[in-house]
Amino acid sequence: MLENKANPTINKSTGLPRKRFYRARAHSNPLSDSHFPIPLSPSHVDYSLHYPQLFPSSDQINGSKIQFADIGCGFGGLLISLSTLFPETLMIGMELRDKVTEYVKERISRLRVANPGQYQNISVVRTNSMKYIPNYFEKGQLSKMFFLFPDPHFKEKNHRRRVISPHLLHEYAYVLQVGGIIYTITDVEELGEWMKSCLENHPMFEALSQEELEADPAVKLLSTATEEGQKVARNGGQTFQAVYRRIVPAS
């Protein structure tokens, strides 16, 4: 850890990057044209870049694919909690803001160094998930999708920028396998109701029962694992969650 002393962006005691050096705006416009690289198709996603220890070379196929996606992963708190909870599962965070993505990248690589053998199953990518989900995942590839504290977009004019919307749910239903689970949580009551009603009205999703929610270890992380969730808890705020399962629609 000697080299860290010279690097002020790294916290000396934890060896992790410090958030203050990765300041970013709270929001980003998902409608603007993107100028970052996008894989041509899911088969073009280079797993060796994301999971170098598990995929030593880019042409190696060991059969396993990304199963969890954290959409709008922010500073990556959920990914890091999930990594040790599901050590055998590959997962990826998707974030539109450039600097935030850089922070998560650095955080993961530091964690990998500090804890050999751990945190090899998580990674992050800068992308606009509202546009390019089908470029990253095949049909039925994912078993869990997380939407934690998304941008509320209060104005009605901007509702189409919301990450949970009737049209986008079709795409999420496409990449989720039957039985896969979509997790949403927010501290904005209006948005919580919106997300719940979108999911409720979609024929390919059904709500989890109370028992199922209590038995699911990922549900506990929704309000505790992320930086945003911790902030809400600190301020004594309320949260609203909606957890739904992908089902085969009754025809």
């Binding site: 041509l40 198709s41 899911p42 089908p134 470029n135 049909k139 009737p166 079709h170 795409e171 239903a173 496409y174 979609h202 024929p203 390919m204 629609p249």
Partner: peptide, 14 residues
């Protein structure tokens, strides 16, 4: 009632 089921995406054009 809307078209909910996506059969596939044909990806490859640049």
């Amino acid at each position: 009632d809307g078209a909910h089921e996506i059969q596939s995406f044909c990806l490859g054009h640049k």
